[in-house]
Structures are given as structure tokens and as C-alpha cells.
Amino acid sequence: MDVFMKGLSKAKEGVVAAAEKTKQGVAEAAGKTKEGVLYVGSKTKEGVVHGVATVAEKTKEQVTNVGGAVVTGVTAVAQKTVEGAGSIAAATGFVKKDQLGKNEEGAPQEGILEDMPVDPDNEAYEMPSEEGYQDYEPEA
């Protein structure tokens, strides 16, 4: 019985440690998101679009440190934060509304985080759909 109880105690310690790591990862992701939003706020009209992409990228980098179902929630929060940063930029006159959601080359930025393969159960990952990809044929 002692062996059984000791095993359960060790398992509990492992769960607590994993929860603490997840909590730490979420806190880091939130900190990076805040950094990115402050970065966007300090940019001029020309830099705002690039700044919004930076927020998304920093958040995406930190999301990889967070495991399990938390990833889905962090990704949703990050996307809403990026959308909010863009709205703030438009409201303050840093950028025109028609410039939001495009990178410096004018290509749409939507789907940055949505296409990231995420499995809350950590069982399997699927690649994003290939609808947006084109076949590449090298020139002879």
C-alpha cells in the first residue's frame, strides 16, 4: 500500500510541476504579447503594419512553449490582441483601416495563427491545408 501511495504522490508532483510550467509559459506569452502591443503603439504610420505582424510573430513563438489545451486559448487571445492593436492603430490615425491585415508588401496577414497546427491532446499534428499553395516548377 505504501508503494501505491508513494507512486500516487510522485504522479501528483509531476502534474503540479507540469501545471506550473504551463502557467509560466502562458505568463511569458502574455508578456511578449504586451511587449508587441507597446511596440505597435510606438510606431509611426509606416511601421504600424509591420508592428502588428511582430506582435503576432512574438506571440506565436511563445505559444510553442505552452502545451496542451492552453495553446488553443493563448492563440485565440493573441489573435484578438493583434486585431485590437490594429483597431487602436486605425482609431489613433497611425494607419488607414484599409491597410490593416496586410503586410508591407500588401499581402493579407489573416491566418497567421489560424494555420498553425495545434492539437490540445498532444496526440497528432496535421499540416495546414494546401489550398493556398501553388506547385513550383523550376525553369529549365
Rank of each mutant, 00 (worst) to 15 (best):
residue 49 V to P: 02
residue 87 S to D: 04
residue 121 D to M: 08
residue 137 E to C: 11
residue 65 N to K: 10
residue 66 V to E: 00
residue 47 G to S: 15
residue 7 G to E: 01
residue 100 L to A: 09
residue 56 A to K: 08
residue 136 Y to L: 07
residue 99 Q to W: 10
residue 69 A to I: 11
residue 75 T to Q: 12
residue 56 A to Y: 15
residue 17 A to V: 10
residue 14 G to C: 11
residue 15 V to I: 10
residue 128 P to T: 13
residue 54 T to W: 12
residue 85 A to I: 13
residue 119 D to M: 07
residue 81 T to A: 10
residue 129 S to L: 06
residue 49 V to A: 11
residue 62 Q to M: 04
residue 42 S to T: 03
residue 6 K to V: 07
residue 88 I to G: 03
residue 69 A to G: 07
residue 46 E to C: 09
residue 100 L to H: 07
residue 58 K to P: 00
residue 88 I to M: 08
residue 62 Q to E: 03
residue 32 K to G: 01
residue 91 A to P: 04
residue 88 I to V: 14
residue 116 M to V: 01
residue 46 E to S: 14
residue 37 V to C: 05
residue 22 T to Q: 01
residue 9 S to H: 12
residue 129 S to Y: 09
residue 103 N to Y: 10
residue 127 M to L: 13
residue 137 E to R: 14
residue 28 E to A: 10
residue 130 E to M: 06
residue 7 G to A: 14
residue 76 A to K: 10
residue 2 D to M: 06
residue 37 V to M: 13
residue 68 G to Y: 13
residue 138 P to A: 13
residue 4 F to I: 06
residue 59 T to Y: 15
residue 96 K to P: 04
residue 10 K to R: 06
residue 96 K to N: 07
residue 51 G to E: 01
residue 103 N to H: 08
residue 91 A to W: 08
residue 91 A to I: 04
residue 25 G to M: 15
residue 140 A to Q: 15
residue 35 E to R: 08
residue 88 I to W: 09
residue 74 V to Q: 00
residue 104 E to N: 15
residue 82 V to W: 11
residue 37 V to W: 11
residue 76 A to S: 12
residue 91 A to D: 03
residue 78 A to N: 01
residue 135 D to L: 10
residue 40 V to C: 06
residue 4 F to N: 01
residue 112 I to W: 11
residue 44 T to Y: 12
residue 117 P to I: 04
residue 59 T to Q: 01
residue 31 G to M: 12
residue 61 E to V: 10
residue 48 V to L: 10
residue 42 S to F: 09
residue 124 A to I: 02
residue 87 S to N: 06
residue 98 D to N: 15
residue 83 E to F: 05
residue 12 K to L: 15
residue 118 V to D: 12
residue 81 T to P: 02
residue 85 A to L: 14
residue 31 G to W: 12
residue 7 G to S: 10
residue 1 M to G: 00
residue 122 N to V: 13
residue 33 T to M: 13
residue 47 G to T: 11
residue 45 K to G: 05
residue 112 I to T: 05
residue 15 V to S: 03
residue 50 H to I: 01
residue 109 Q to P: 15
residue 39 Y to P: 00
residue 65 N to I: 11
residue 116 M to Y: 02
residue 105 E to I: 01
